[in-house]
Design a protein around this nucleic acid. Structure first.
Length: 570
DNA sequence: GCCGTTTTCGGCCCGACTGTTTTCAGTCG
């Protein structure tokens, strides 16, 4: 059973326990669910090692349930709860405004089991007659059902960024607004974003609330108060906006950046030091006197925790390191000197090599690697050896003409037998070779691992592209023995790619961290198929930062001279 | 149900908004 399936069941158990009126168990199951959900390692592997209880929030009982789920695909405890609560909890929970208590009441009084029952009851005005319900809530439910039908989708960071930044700009231009910052998972640069949280300081909160609830992008207003509003945009994205005093901006930014477990940890530290921490500041427990709040820095400092970048705030041990003043100095967004995985019109790119090179130069890069497809995928117009020679001649000409250095590369398919789809002789004519899996995904972990390992061991591969093959929300990663893979990339001095395509973001942060521990090197690559994609490099840097990587871990932070030497050494 | 530089038992993060209420419960993040 996959991590996400298990997490979902744990979440469902939490909801059901909540309905039954349990006090603290729901929070316990939720915490365990969040841990399982955010793990990058396959939970079955953790189970095989007997380390389920090492997962934060998983103790004796939840570990037993996870074990049962892995072994049998079922949990008796969960099945029993479902028998007691025969409504479609996940379906009903997706209606904004409906939580455990109301869903329970709707079932007890009106026998509502699913969205269909709910819609009928609301249209027949049976809900407004219930105690603690009313006309407004019934109307909200009807609107909520429509939202629930389109909901459940998260947005890819790279694709939502332009809209988020545009809204931020518009708010910044309002006369009363001083500061605007997007917090939440957006600020942590998670691969997918469920909603965006915007924090604002303004001398006129009403102006901000009026603006955000009436701007042209809005399709629904879920809430509008004096300092906080929630809207749904036409594309389905939820946006929360909060207006704050500048004296509390730092504490709010800290609080709403999260993640949840990082914050809970930090608040516990506050309590242990005689403080209480909330979005309005750090206060003395006795007397409630304000101690810090204007900036994030002063809050972390007061707590004896070195501040770390938002990407790291995931409660993966960063707080402990920060208390010992041992945080890594993570790679910065402007540290790349070049880009080593891009495509041109020779294969499936949209722009010529010259256009790509000029754009890369404009971005301040010293070098650009052109790596068009070589292999079997017809859709990519893969190159053969004679077209590679033709391309090499064009690159030689451009290198004389342009200020940026262009490297001759190729992105070569790793075949099912572990050989590259390009002769050794042709590989040696290139400045660098990228190995990729583009077909034959359906292999066992053992087969896939040995396929890649043998490619790295037997061929002249400088970079392993998008190492897990995942496409976010579209395709699962293929199974791999990461320990073996990381050992091999280290031994063969192959760089692991951090692919910046919004749909890939591969390796992810957690795998970067594990690979770094194994001693691997990395390369942040845009995999650009047109010149505008070159700007995606920041998405890969975000992954690297979440993976605690430093500049020295990432080879394309190195100067032209140094990278030439590295590429030639293979 | 989990967890421990005050604890193996007794705690468990906290505030805004909304609607239904006359002081608060439910939801949400």
């Amino acid at each position: 059973m996959k991590n996400l399936e298990i997490a979902k069941i744990l979440y469902m158990i939490a909801e059901m326990l909540d309905m039954k009126g349990e006090a603290f168990k729901p929070a316990a199951y939720q915490k365990a669910a969040r841990s399982v959900e955010s793990m990058s390692e396959d939970i079955e592997e953790v189970y095989k090692r007997g380390e389920l209880k090492e997962i934060p929030g998983v103790g004796e009982h939840i570990a037993q349930k996870i074990e049962e789920l892995i072994k049998t695909g079922k949990s008796k405890y969960y099945e029993d709860l479902k028998k007691q609560l025969p409504m479609k909890v996940d379906e009903l929970m997706s209606v904004p405004g409906l939580g455990a208590k109301r869903i329970m009441l709707l079932y007890q009084k009106l026998k509502i089991r699913n969205l269909k029952d709910l819609e009928r009851a609301a249209k027949e005005h049976r809900i407004q007659k219930l105690e603690r319900f009313g006309v407004k809530i019934e109307e909200d439910i009807l609107r909520g059902i429509e939202i629930a039908k389109t909901k459940g989708k998260r947005f890819l960071l790279g694709y939502i960024m332009p809209l988020a930044e545009e809204i931020k700009e518009k708010l910044a231009k309002l006369g009363s607004v001083d500061r605007v910052e997007i917090a939440g998972s957006y600020r942590r640069q998670r691969e997918t974003i469920g909603d965006i949280d915007i924090l604002v300081t303004s001398s006129n909160a009403k102006e901000v609330m009026d603006y955000i609830t009436t701007m042209s992008e809005v399709s629904d207003v879920l809430a509008k108060g004096p300092t906080k509003s929630t809207v749904i945009l036409k594309n389905g994205l939820q946006v929360d906006v909060r207006v704050l005093k500048s004296s509390e901006f730092g504490s709010a930014l800290q609080y709403f950046t999260g993640n949840k477990d990082h914050n809970i940890e930090l608040r516990k530290i506050a309590l242990s030091k005689g403080y209480t921490l909330n979005e309005y500041g750090l206060f003395k427990l006795k007397g409630k006197q304000l101690v810090a709040g204007k900036t994030e820095e002063e809050i972390y400092k007061k707590l004896g925790v070195d501040i770390m970048p938002p990407e790291m705030r995931e409660n993966h041990g960063e707080i402990k390191l920060a208390m010992m003043h041992k945080l890594p100095k993570v790679i910065s967004y402007n540290s790349l000197k070049g880009n080593l995985h891009t495509h041109s019109t020779y294969s499936d790119g949209n722009d010529s090599i010259e256009e790509m090179a000029k754009s890369a130069e404009k971005l301040g890069f010293e070098y650009l690697g052109i790596s068009d497809h070589v292999g079997q995928l017809a859709i990519t117009h893969a190159l053969n050896e004679s077209r590679l020679i033709k391309q090499a001649k064009e690159i030689d000409k451009l290198n004389k003409k342009l200020g940026i250095r262009i490297f001759k590369g190729a992105e070569v398919d790793i075949l099912k037998n572990g050989r590259l789809a390009l002769s050794r002789k042709a590989q040696e004519k290139l400045d660098f070779v990228i190995g990729s899996i583009h077909l034959g995904f359906k292999m066992s972990e053992k087969e896939m691992t040995s396929r890649i390992v043998s490619a790295l061991e037997n061929d002249r591969v400088h970079i392993l592209a998008h190492p897990t093959g995942r496409l976010i929300q579209q395709r699962e990663a293929y199974p791999l023995n990461f320990e073996k893979l990381f050992d091999t990339t280290k031994e063969t001095e192959t760089a692991l790619e951090i692919n910046c395509s919004p749909e890939r973001m591969d390796l992810n942060g957690e795998l970067c961290r594990a690979a770094k521990q194994a001693g691997c090197k990395f390369v942040v690559s845009t995999d650009a198929h047109n010149k505008s994609h070159l700007g995606y490099f920041n998405l890969g840097i975000a992954m690297a930062r979440r993976g605690w990587l430093e500049e020295k871990d990432v080879i394309n932070t190195f100067s032209l001279k140094k990278i030439e030497k590295i590429l030639k050494s293979k």
